[in-house]
Design a binder for these strands. Structure first.
Lengths: 133, 133, 133, 133
DNA sequence: GTGGTCTAGACCACC
DNA sequence: GTGGTCTAGACCACA
């Protein structure tokens, strides 16, 4: 499994899970229709609580990134990912605003900030094509 | 005062305060050396507890954005803001990664994402250079 | 617990807590990875408010002496203590300067002052290396 | 005057005053019998409140470092400085303990700590012989 | 009047 | 159970 948790991070474990699964999908490591480990398995592998994994999967299901089948178990949304909704745009902007302000105050230029964004996006996407290790 | 709180938001009040003050500095609405309202005043104005304001001010102090001056009270750091530290870069990247992944999965292109970042940065900065005095 | 507070002292309770925990680490009574009492437990044991303990723990966390672990609670930094930073050297010197001046004025010789420092250091360190497990 | 205040330090102004006067005596810049500026003058020079200077002078008088004459004004104790009292030893040790622990935890050796103490003592003493500038 | 400290008591998210 | 956040209300040192 490609998930690494930081137990002393201030971001809750379930959120780290969510993030990393989304990153997995973005990078192509997880493709539409791909199965995810069962709640029980993943929890055990990572040494964390069932509730925590459950919460993460539920959030992802609600957002439309996962499907939970009674038989197939949990799989990556095969019927097309949700698009760029109004709500998402709003959330994205709000978070970017906070980051941009902090960056600007510290003297980071618009150019650098945009480059940084672009480069991070590319990195995220780029591992596409299959490390599952 | 230019601060607006969303008491229902899941981001803690003190964090909203921190964000908005940083944005205030980034936008130039708050300039180095400018005084901030006293803890009690601001708390009363916003209808929140003084400890909450105190926490926000303290965080900003330890990050180097504010100074607590024996005579002038709390002021915006006059001796140069902290620069782009290693730690900040790391935090910025980490947050961008999460945003970029979510954007990518939803089909937002690299170009759009970078443009969005740039545009938000610009908005944040705007009105820098000439108001209020 | 090995902590003793002087509630009448002019040094704030939270600062006494910080000092004593650092001394505990220095003496080896607290080893890297060791758990500390929960905020509420310690507060109750010491007969003080939980916020006071919380403040002390937080200060120690940001200095890098403690970690707040999602599962284990609060533990002594297991990944190596922070080293002798520029800032620490500065703070140390400043405090020593004040002490040295007072000592000198009262007629304490350089030799005695240095010996005193050495001896206190040794006392602090003593019992390092082998108790409690 | 050789006094420099840091208005955004967390040590109160009156304490900074006390420290620097003691350092002045230790270094020989201020000799027994030497006059100090009047409360009013010093307050004005430093741009601080009368009360603050007054408090500092009073503390120094109580400790026996200064004399306040109705005619001569404030002078450095001419009749011999107070010696190393029990109480002073205690206070010194307590403060050194805290410093030593912090130093030890950060990996500073006994030798370095003692050297540091000695060197700071020497610096404090050394300017002896008259810069009044 | 300022910030700093402390208390008592509450709710919530996380695990 | 844990830490994190928030409130209400108090006292004190400082300037």
């Amino acid at each position: 499994m490609f998930i690494e948790l930081d137990l002393q991070s201030e971001t809750p474990i379930y959120a780290q899970l969510v993030d990393q699964i989304v990153e997995g999908i973005a990078s192509g490591a997880l493709k539409p229709g791909d199965p995810l480990p069962s709640i029980r398995n993943l929890a055990e592998d990572l040494g964390i609580n069932l509730h925590t994994v459950n919460k993460a999967y539920n959030l992802l299901k609600q957002e439309g990134f996962l499907q939970v089948h009674r038989k197939k178990g949990v799989i990556v949304q095969p019927d097309g990912m949700p698009g760029v909704t109004e709500a998402f745009e709003e959330k994205l902007r709000q978070q970017l605003r906070s980051l941009a302000a902090a960056a600007a105050v510290r003297g980071m230029t618009e150019e650098t900030f945009a480059q940084e964004s672009r480069s991070v996006y590319r990195d995220t996407i780029t591992n596409r094509g299959g490390e599952q290790r």
